[in-house]
Computed example of a mutant assay.
Amino acid sequence: MAPRAGTSNRAALRSAARLAAVQALYQMDMTGIDLKEVVAEFTEHRLGQEIEGDQYNKVEDQSFADLVEGVVREQRSLDPLIDQQLAEGWRLTRVDSILRAILRSGAYELFTRDDVPARVVITEYVDIAHAFFGEDEPRVVNGILDRLGHKARPKEFAVSEAGK
């Protein structure tokens, strides 16, 4: 089956939106910048722009805003779910800020965006983790998001595991 026209471009825009959302969440965490301010800063001054020699990709604006706003809105319910997946004695607040942003964004998508297959969500955030870290952190992202995916979408995983 051939992909619909524009599908791969839309996927690339969504991937870029995920990366930008993680960066925006990280910036909020590190600077205390307000939600509306960070979304405005990214959409008006970063996304699709070249800044100090770095080219920021264009993104699917709606996906970017949904991710950042959704993570902030749902953080109180997402954090305990992520905490349960961490090694004993660890809490999300002890995790590196960028890793925390990746896990929150991935968890948000798994629990709220059933229009995107869980395995796609997991792969996308593992790829983002590879952009920032060596091998250990991407493995942590994969393990945690996989367990959360099984909780959030058991039917989706049951179908794929039955076909193995």
Rank of each mutant, 00 (worst) to 15 (best):
V38P: 07
V39K: 09
A40Q: 11
A40W: 08
A40Y: 06
E41I: 00
F42R: 07
F42G: 07
F42L: 05
T43A: 03
H45W: 08
H45C: 05
R46G: 00
L47Q: 09
G48L: 05
G48T: 04
E50P: 04
E50D: 12
D54C: 11
Q55A: 15
N57C: 08
K58F: 13
Q62L: 15
S63M: 15
S63C: 10
D66E: 08
D66G: 02
L67V: 09
E69Q: 11
G70D: 06
G70V: 02
V71T: 12
V71H: 08
R73Y: 11
R73F: 15
E74T: 06
R76N: 13
L78Y: 08
L78Q: 05
L81G: 01
L81P: 00
L81W: 05
D83G: 00
Q84T: 06
L86K: 01
A87P: 08
E88D: 10
E88A: 10
G89S: 04
G89H: 04
W90S: 10
R91H: 09
T93N: 10
T93A: 14
T93G: 07
R94D: 12
R94S: 13
R94C: 11
I98M: 12
I98S: 02
L99K: 09
L99S: 08
R100D: 06
R100Y: 08
A101G: 10
I102K: 02
R104M: 12
R104Q: 14
S105G: 15
G106M: 03
